[in-house]
Structures are given as C-alpha cells and as structure tokens.
C-alpha cells in the first residue's frame, strides 16, 4: 500500500520533470527560431555595416586559415593512409585519390571545417556577446536606438556564411594535396593515375554541394553562437555556460543538418 503510493508520486514527479524539460526545449527552439529569423532578415536591411562585416570576416576567415590548413592536411593524409590499407586488400589502391577527394569535398571538408571553426570562432562569438550582455553593453546599444541583433548578430552571420565555404575549399585543397603526398610518395600510387581518378570520379557538383553545406553550417554556427551569447545571464559563470552550450549545440546541429542535407541532395552514386 505504502510503496504503491510512493510509486504513484514518483512517476508523477518523473512525468512532470520530463514535461518541464520538453517545455524548455520547445521554448528554446522557438526563441532560437525567432532570433535567427530576425538576424537573417536584418542582414538584408540597411544600415549595412561593412566595417563590422569585414572585421568579422577577418576574424572568422583569415584567422582560422592556419588551423583549417593544419587539420585539412592531416585529415587528408590519415584518410589516404587508411583507405590505402583497405584498398590494398583487393588491389584497388588506384582509387585512393578519388575516394579521399570525394569524401573531402562532400562530407569531411565542410563538416570538419565547421567543427574546427566552431571551436575557434563560434565560441568567441558566444563569449563576446555574452560578456556584452552581462555588462549591459547590449542594453547600451538599445538605448542608443541601435538594433543589437543587427549590430552584433547580422555581421557575424554574413561573415560566417561567406567564409565557411572559403575555408572549406582550403580544407578540400590541402586535404587532397596531403592525400597525394601520402598516396604517391608513401603508398606508391602512380601520380598520373592518382590525379586521373580524381578527375574521373569527382564532379563539380560534389564540390558545389559541399560548399553549399558549408554555407549552411556557417549560418548554423553564427546563429546558435550569437543566440547563446545574446541571452547569457548571470555574470562570468553564465557566460561560460553560454560558450559551452554554443559549441556543443552547434556541433550537434552541424552533424544533424549534414544528415538532412545529404539525404536531400542524394548520393549522386551511379551518375
């Protein structure tokens, strides 16, 4: 009897907790959607803040170049090495170049670039906006009749959407070069065959699709990071939490959006 009452209460508490969590998630998603829609809309409305956009492009793009270069070359080399082990089993090592190039352009390039840049620039966006929120700088913008989403989020959104495809191209290029170096000089594939296979199997469409993905990932990164920073509260600790959440949420969202887009774009196999 007694334990029966207990279970009833416990299950009610659990249900309430779950409902509460669900409500918060839905609310959060709704607020995020409103925030992002506003940021996108304001990005297309004057005043256009060219100086802010350029400085964000520099921060997101130029300053991420080195880390993208590094991760890209390592990814290409490792991938060439791994696939050469596998292809060796059925003597198809000629395909290493095209396999690496295809995976890079379609998947690994955009996704890796987005994850790396999120760690560097997405976290910085959340930190900067979060600090501005808790020190009332965002309120100050508002009192001076400057729309803070337009002033802060829109330039970051534009810069990310433009720069992520550029960085992805860098990643694809150095990755392929890395694969070439490992494939030709270490595994011993014929240089001509290596390149020939890439030309044969990789279509411009693969590259374009990858770059479109990268642009979408850039939008996701900027909107999520700005959203988390913009609504930070509770001093330094709150800013820290905002940064962590921004990075985690962006990373998960990038992978999820990648899945959706891959499904939408089709595999392109058999063309």
């Amino acid at each position: 009897m007694h334990s029966c009452w207990n279970t009833a209460v416990e299950s009610r508490i659990i249900v309430e907790l779950l409902l509460g969590a669900l409500k918060r998630i839905i609310e959060g998603a709704g607020n995020y959607a409103i925030f992002s829609a506003r940021a996108v809309k304001l990005a297309f409305l004057p005043p256009f803040r060219l100086r802010l956009i350029l400085s964000q492009m520099e921060f997101i793009g130029v300053n991420s170049f080195f880390i993208v270069f590094l991760t890209g070359s390592f990814a290409g080399m490792v991938f060439a090495l791994q696939s050469s082990y596998a292809f060796k089993l059925f003597s198809a090592q000629d395909l290493v170049g095209s396999t690496v190039a295809l995976s890079l352009t379609r998947e690994i390039g955009p996704v890796f670039t987005a994850l790396v840049v999120t760690g560097r620039a997405g976290s910085a966006m959340a930190a900067e906006l979060g600090a501005m929120r808790v020190t009332e700088q965002i309120d100050a913008l508002e009192t001076m009749a400057v729309e803070p989403i337009q002033y802060l989020a829109a330039p970051r959104l534009i810069a990310s959407t433009v720069m992520l495809p550029v960085l992805t191209m860098v990643f694809d290029a150095v990755g392929t070069i890395g694969a070439y170096i490992v494939g030709v000089y270490y595994v011993g594939i014929d240089a001509g065959t290596f390149i020939n296979r890439i030309q044969y199997y990789v279509d411009p469409e693969d590259v374009y699709n990858g770059l479109i993905k990268a642009a979408v990932f850039g939008m996701v990164m900027a909107t999520v990071s700005c959203y988390k920073g913009f609504f930070a509260k509770g001093g330094a600790k709150g800013v820290g939490e905002a940064i962590t959440r921004a990075v985690v949420l962006t990373s998960v969202s990038v992978l999820f959006v990648d899945l959706l887009m891959t499904a939408l774009m089709g595999s392109g196999v058999g063309k």
Partner: peptide
C-alpha cells in the same frame, strides 16, 4: 521605439562602455 529612444541619453550605473572601442569611439557612437 527607436525614434522615442533617440530623445534619451542613459548613463548606466556601471558605465556599460563598449570594451571593443576606445574612449573616442565610445563617446562618438
């Protein structure tokens, strides 16, 4: 709201200066 706010100046308790800008740019904002 923007129009109404341009009639105002607010001096925040903790100044709330933009820390990415120098004094000149803050005041000129």
């Amino acid at each position: 709201l923007g129009r109404l706010r341009t009639n105002f100046g607010l001096c925040f308790q903790n100044a709330a200066l933009f820390d990415s800008m120098n004094v000149f740019d803050n005041v000129a904002f």
